[in-house]
């Protein structure tokens, strides 16, 4: 039995619908196919109190692709990213308008349980944030709270291998994760996210606190796991977006006339290749060529 089926909400996401996303690597077909949409964002706006952080975003994120979000600071990339696993719920004053369909189900439907969403849509944060526990316990945290029985040793090894960290830590699994280097900690956080077998991984500037070598490792890792996971990455590093992503979204901030605030808008969303060689919008071109931002 694939572990995913145990994660089914007792109540929450309506089950009978298209949500049977029990996957295993064998689902990956080798032939080129029409990409399957995972998220369909429609006319999405996010407010913090009266302040509108992003407005009217629409895009489709496809399965087993890396989608990157680029744009200047304060244009709502992270805000949008946090809508995909409902992390914005944790901010009391945040409010979402419009819809995000996840395999056809509106993530913000009142019956959808944010906890279940987050088990399918994992997240890696800007600063590595391992728990102050052992490496082993960091990995088993997710599976344990999800009630997975299974062989924990095996889950730990598989997750660490997938995150390309196994060889470095296999002899000190019981040591504190806080003793690892920044890059290792970030790969541990990726391994921790992978341990619950999510379908999507959201990465919020995962390399901004890392040196170039550690960054290269993370990028290689993303390339490797892309065949099994859908990845959305926010990055300030345009070269990184160009290197790793299949699709790229460029956001910018417009200054509101009535108040001194900025609202993020999606300018252009296309194949990364096209975004960096022949973008349709002038603002995109100015940004990717370094004339703005």
């Amino acid at each position: 039995m694939p572990p995913d089926s145990k994660l089914k909400a007792k109540k929450g996401i309506p089950t009978a619908q298209r949500l049977d996303i029990s996957r295993s690597p064998s689902d990956v077909s080798l032939t080129e196919q029409e990409p399957v949409p995972v998220f369909e964002v429609d006319d999405l706006s996010v407010y913090y109190g009266a302040f509108r952080a992003i407005r009217n975003v629409g895009m489709t994120v496809c399965e087993r692709q890396i989608t990157s979000f680029i744009g200047p600071s304060g244009c709502g990339k992270t805000t949008l990213l946090r809508c995909f696993n409902r992390m914005n719920d944790l901010v009391d004053i945040a409010r979402v308008e419009g819809s995000i369909l996840y395999h056809g189900i509106n993530l913000y439907h009142p019956e959808v349980n944010a906890v279940e969403v987050r088990r399918r849509v994992g997240m890696v944060f800007q600063k590595p944030n391992p728990f102050p526990k052992s490496i082993y316990d960091n990995i088993t945290f997710g599976p344990k709270i999800a009630g997975l029985k299974g062989d924990m040793d095996e889950i730990v090894e598989r997750s660490l291998r997938r995150a390309a960290l196994w060889d470095e830590v296999k002899d000190r699994l019981k040591d504190s994760a806080m003793g690892l280097s920044g890059g290792q900690q970030q790969r541990l956080c990726i391994a921790r996210a992978l341990a619950v077998n999510p379908e999507v991984i959201l990465m919020d500037e995962p390399c901004s606190a890392l040196d170039p070598i550690a960054t290269g490792r993370i990028e290689d890792l993303m390339e490797e796991i892309k065949s099994e996971y859908t990845i959305i990455i926010v990055t300030h590093n345009m070269q990184q977006a160009a290197r790793v992503s299949d699709m790229c979204a460029f956001f910018t901030a417009e200054v509101n006339e009535t108040s001194d605030t900025r609202t993020g808008i999606l300018v252009e969303f296309d194949k990364t290749e096209k975004m960096f060689s022949n973008p349709a919008d002038e603002r995109t071109e100015n940004y990717v060529t370094g004339r703005f931002g």
Binding site: N85, F131, G142, I145
Partner: peptide
């Protein structure tokens, strides 16, 4: 950041309090 890590793994509030914040 630690709470977010926990919530991001699909932990509930109780779980986060008991398994992450208290330890």
């Amino acid at each position: 950041a630690l709470r977010e890590a926990s919530y991001g793994m699909g932990a509930r509030k109780v779980t986060t309090a008991v398994r992450v914040v208290i330890p």
